[in-house]
Amino acid sequence: MATVIVVTSGKGGVGKTTTSASFAVGLAQRGYRTAVIDFDVGLRNLDLIMGCERRVVYDFVNVINSEANLNQALIRDKRVENLYILPASQTRDKEALTKEGVERVLGELRESFEYIVCDSPAGIERGALMALYFADEALVVTNPEVSSVRDSDRILGILASRSRRAEQGDPPVQEHLVLARYAPERAHRGDMLSVEDVLEILGIPLLGVIPESPAVLQSSNAGVPVILDDGSEAGAAYGDLVDRFLGKNLPHRFLTAQKKGFLKRLFGGS
């Protein structure tokens, strides 16, 4: 039985696509057949983050409109086995995502995949609603910043009221918090909401904390999901996150400020 996971946030620019890409790669690395779908019709970017932008021929909307079949549109990842990407359409408007169309494509994917990751667009419009509607579980990506936390709470309300599980009275969508762009030393100084603060406000279980890291930008520059850079803190944090999602009980890392040398402390620089 396939599991559908939406990666959502409400606010834009908090790390949804970065998280979708690394999460999907992590699941596939661990042997699960995984598909990751870009729901951001008109503003696709998952293909760039995954480094397959030049291999897009058909897209999600082509499949919904039966202009191509799923096998023609799915892009097989060249680095990781078991991983396929379904890109969003760049030209059409979001109205192309019909509930019936999305349901049919997800149904087909369920036959051959174990995990289906839905990368939601920002906002609470059609694309975002369709990305979360069929979800069994949700990764809510939040930054330790007021507008992001508020928007995440709004999305939690929508998951609880407007998902298919909510409408049909099934067990609710299982929610997981992913706190991204965390800077432990700033939180320690009291300049940034801490992990505990965000958990207290949102009240959902913490799946992972991704530290602010230059590796994230370097990875997107190169089109290589940051989880594949396992020497970086962000990459290692995504690895842990995937293991935790699959049931491993791992302590959270990168939550405390690193000790700096005396000179660095004296003269600053972080």
Binding site: E145, V146, V149, R150, D153, A187, G190, D191, M192, L193, S194, D197, E200, I201
Partner: peptide, 15 residues
Amino acid sequence: NKSAALAKERLQIIV
């Protein structure tokens, strides 16, 4: 100057 405490308080109220 603990701005995070202020952020938390404002968020708790609005949320």
